[in-house]
Simulated scan of single mutants.
Amino acid sequence: MPHSISRRPVLRLLTGGALLTAATLGLAQADTWTPAKPIRLLVPYGPGGSSDVIARAIATEMAKGLGKAVVVENKGGGQGTIATSEVARARPDGYTIVLGHVGTLAVNPAMMKDLPYRVDQDFAPITLLARLPMVFAVSDRVEAADLPAFIRLARARPGKFNYGSAGNGSAGHLAFEMLKTATKTAITHVPYKGTGAQVADLIAGHIDAAAAGTPGLLPPFQAGRIRILAVGASKRLAVLPDVPTVAELGYPGFESSQWFGLLAPAGTPQPVVRRLHEEALKALHSPSVQQRLQHDSSESLGQGPAEFSAFIRGEQARWGDVVRAAGISAD
């Protein structure tokens, strides 16, 4: 009997030591998180657009560093809410992430009354990847050689001119509404289901103007089919050295860009977020991704989780003002 009694404290000590060792090992493993299976990267828009192009370029390079595939899944619809809300509800283990966008993170909260996710509570920001400046163009049928001339025409004939965008609440829609507010003009919005259809009608002269990124507008501009009047960036673009910024033309502080970043579900362990950020940063500075971004006149950023979170809050305030001033609501 004494022997059996004396063994119990020893057993407790051994059990406690084993648990302590297991916990320590678990923390060590978490601090050096390595994925055990492929990671899903959901893109809240269809294939072929700027979001899809950037996501696939980043995913290819991240997979090299992580040692597991990063599988891009396009889940468009609901103005980006379908994919974004799916990630908000996903298990916070690092295996499901989303490509955030100015529309889903900054515009939708101001535009939608029943948004199925809470930007400030449902996500763990990983990194801000890149910013793509918007450019403003007109059909070659519009008799305006530059932005000041187009503004004079629009002011002289309020409501006569229209502009297209990739859809209600899209980056192009918000960019042009910001331009209208800055220039005090009345120009009618014509929403399309994507950039391709919008640009096709701009070339054909069915719409007068448009705002979009360089991937959609640069090819027809270079072919002489449309005119690019100004860029929404804070400085001129290397691919459009002769095209002024809106700010240069008398509207100081004007800047309109769409941006992209990575987010995980809220509650994702910090070591996992940190590893994903590190690999995203490596991918962002790889030659292949840099070449892709330069081709599209995108600016690589690479902000960390805290900076990205603060950036989102600032963008929500800025674009919320535009949404309210223009009276924009979800379809």
Rank of each mutant, 00 (worst) to 15 (best):
Q198E: 12
L174N: 03
S165D: 07
S170K: 08
A211Q: 01
H173N: 12
G169R: 06
G164H: 09
H206A: 11
A166C: 12
S165Q: 05
I207G: 07
S170F: 10
K193P: 05
Q222W: 00
Y192H: 15
V231Y: 03
A186T: 15
L174F: 04
A230V: 05
G194N: 09
G205A: 04
I228T: 04
H189A: 12
P220A: 00
Q222Y: 00
A166P: 15
T195N: 11
G196P: 11
L217I: 11
T185S: 14
I228C: 01
A209W: 11
A204Q: 13
A171L: 01
H189W: 12
L217Q: 02
Q222T: 00
A204H: 11
D201N: 14
G232Q: 03
M178W: 06
I207T: 03
E177D: 13
K184I: 02
A211D: 01
L218P: 01
S165T: 04
T185F: 14
A166W: 07
F176L: 10
V231E: 10
H189G: 08
L179Y: 11
I226N: 00
A212R: 02
R227W: 03
K184R: 15
R227T: 04
S165R: 04
G216A: 14
A223T: 02
Y192I: 06
A166D: 10
N162M: 07
R225H: 10
T185V: 07
G169E: 07
G232D: 04
A186Q: 12
I207N: 09
L174C: 13
K193F: 12
A186H: 13
G216L: 02
G216P: 14
A171K: 02
R225W: 06
A197D: 13
S170C: 12
D208A: 14
I203Y: 08
G232C: 04
P215Q: 09
H173K: 08
H206W: 06
